[in-house]
Design a protein around this nucleic acid. Structure first.
Lengths: 157, 157
DNA sequence: TGCAATTTAATTGCATACCATTGTATAGCA
DNA sequence: TGCTATACAATGGTATGCAATTAAATTGCA
């Protein structure tokens, strides 16, 4: 038995099967779950990404574009037009920071704050249709966060 | 103690925290993993979605747009332009099915088939940077497929 | 102080994704 | 056969996402 990594002995045929990779179930599951949110979020007038922005603002309060992007893993190319649309809808305000003109402060309007109550049911409805036990959910989140953390670390390495 | 679901007793503040939801780690992890593929796929001249199409074609052989979409959870609005680009690059051919003119058959060219060998290293490289054990990987895939299956079922219900 | 390096958003360009609609082709039935 | 319903891919419109670049502001150092 040659001293090789296990993977080196596996033929390309096996390695390249859709089911044998983690990435495809991850990609497909993420898309389908997001899609499943749509009917609930439509009632609130939000897209999925806009919903994430609202979650972050409800939880952490006023922030900057950069902070928001770090938290949600989104860059300014995505956030800037998104935030402008949300501002146009009256959910939040974008203001150049007085102390540091490079920064733009994002702050919810009263309407944006009020939307939180109507959003309350969204996680409950979604929880009902993922159909896994709380224990499984916790394990899934743990594994996802582990992968997320490792993938990010290996980027700078 | 009133007879209510557990969730009904949890305040909106807790329910709506980013970390308390499965959707956000799922969404973020998927995006970051896909992003991490980019440098490897660049060498093959493929985008991530194009890579998925190639995986499906390498594994299952010639197919139709509809079949491909079912397998990859993509619709014709995404696939048609994608496949046209891949055809222009010489990776595959799109032909109207002789027996049923509604269908378009997708088939790899020799060049498309040959690319498989060069793609062999991609799963190995990616496997190295997700940094979880084979056991954890298997559990993660199992849970993702369970959620995927449940989310899809609840759509028609 | 004055200038180079850095930080921060915004912009541009490219590639998905999904929904709804359209147009062509086939199937199924009166 | 002829008409309607269905199936399928393509199209058009909207919304992300990311990389690379730009532009303005601030920092830090000579």
């Amino acid at each position: 038995m040659a001293k090789r990594s296990i993977a080196a002995d596996v033929p390309a045929d096996e390695l390249l099967k859709l089911e044998n990779q983690m990435c495809f179930p991850l990609y497909a599951c993420s898309k389908e779950v997001v899609r499943r949110y749509t009917p609930y979020l439509d009632k609130l007038g939000l897209t999925y990404t806009q919903y994430l922005v609202m979650l972050a603002l409800w939880e952490y309060g006023p922030t900057t574009v950069g902070e928001l992007g770090e938290r949600l893993y989104l860059d300014s190319g995505t956030l800037t037009p998104l935030l402008k649309k949300m501002e146009a809808k009256g959910l939040l305000e974008r203001k150049r920071n007085a102390g540091d003109e490079r920064r733009v402060t994002i702050e919810l309007t009263d309407e944006g704050v009020a939307l939180k109550e109507r959003a309350r049911d969204v996680p409950l409805s979604m929880g009902a249709c993922v159909g896994i036990t709380p224990g499984e959910g916790a394990e899934l989140v743990r594994l996802l966060q582990k992968v997320l953390s490792n993938v990010r670390d290996s980027r700078e390495g």
